[in-house]
Design a protein around this nucleic acid. Sequence first.
DNA 1: AGACGTTTAATTGTCTGACAAATGAAAATT
DNA 2: AATTTTCATTTGTCAGACAATTAAACGTCT
Lengths: 244, 244
Amino acid sequence: MKIDPSSPADLSAQIAKAIRDAIISGALPVDERLPSEAELAEHFDVSRPTVREALKRLAAQSLIRTQRGATGGAFVNRLKFEDAYGQQITTSTLLLSMNAVSFATACEARYALERACAPLSAERRSADHLATMRAEAHRQSQPGLTDEAFCASDVAFHRALVDAAGNPVLSYQLAGAVEAMQPLMNMITFSARSREKIIGLHQMIADAIEAQDAVAADATLAALATYTQELAQGVIAARDKAAQ
Amino acid sequence: MKIDPSSPADLSAQIAKAIRDAIISGALPVDERLPSEAELAEHFDVSRPTVREALKRLAAQSLIRTQRGATGGAFVNRLKFEDAYGQQITTSTLLLSMNAVSFATACEARYALERACAPLSAERRSADHLATMRAEAHRQSQPGLTDEAFCASDVAFHRALVDAAGNPVLSYQLAGAVEAMQPLMNMITFSARSREKIIGLHQMIADAIEAQDAVAADATLAALATYTQELAQGVIAARDKAAQ
DNA sequence: AGACGTTTAATTGTCTGACAAATGAAAATT
DNA sequence: AATTTTCATTTGTCAGACAATTAAACGTCT
């Protein structure tokens, strides 16, 4: 293969793209061993450091893994949902923080997505997921909980709700949406009363899921979305007032 | 700063993580210039190639951009929705193809997500988005269209439907779900009759969105989901039969 | 012959030093 | 003052070397 040396892009970026395309197209199947760095360098007519930079780019996307030793090398990595979660969360978090995405926009997206899988969760919920939801709701009611811990438990609750749908693709898609919201949620100071109301809604959601009542679950999620927006608006209004 | 040389992880991975954490935490704001490669090498007590491998990892995630020249260097990149789309699509596509995700699972996730934003699309649709949907529906009715072109137009139609919700976070989340489905959809051979039915449903969706009728849009999307699953089941059944 | 230690070859990880290319700033020239 | 030239800085690339790791091949002893 040849690489265009007159292209404006870095050689390592071009090589990474070539290998990435081969992986996506299926030309390089999972667990296939790539040629050694020395062979790749000769093949693309570049030096080994350049090849290594390309491989590191792919490793950063979890597309390959490397192993040292006699039978080592770079192998096409089976992308796990777990790996994809991490990347999704990093990307989503940065997208929200770097693009001045409003709380309202992010919150709307989050609850729209959650409501999408609520009917499926109601239909398929296992005892495990229900137990997790109950446990988190109970944790949230404990006194002395910091706002951060409350938010973390909130994320765990909603994560269980989403996982209950039993669709890994949905879980993966929503992981970013829910977890990326946490830094924004952490800005909210929860009063005892607002916590009480949220916990009450959480319990209602758990009840609806347990009863396999999709309509009730959807309605309660909608109420939670509305209430969360109200809380945030209060915080924003107070902050704006203080800024004056 | 110091890097643990006894850690099992590569030095470049550790350095990349340190810088990535600094970006995520906000310690390194957008457009901030990182120290030069030579300075980073001295700072982390490693060689320049090692620093470069770390920077390439970050560049692969669009976290930094680099520029040559006197005032060049590596800068913290403002992550654009556009960049995030690309990564999302790549990741989602590979997740589906590498993990033997069934068509049913992927399809369910896709339509669940789409139905989540249909009410918002109905409420906020602009003339632009409606025009795109109409144009794609019309393109789909043209004779002589290959299955691939039909699928591509299908993606464009649904993309417009999602974008009509006017929520960039939702658009970003759904881009992966919809586009990653395309390779799976391309496996389906569309008969003239099935195309006709799909186009009819598309037109009904466009009508509902235009009329701002969220309920009708949701119902039609549900019908489309069911029909798509039926088509796929037919293909799978035929394939299994041929395999015997 | 079989179990166990040793050597060896292959491969990635890291370092050093060097040069090319780009680029903006400073200096020189018109 | 405007333009050109020079220069310093920084990234991009290369060549070569050595260390670390690993599994297979080889020998040795029982």
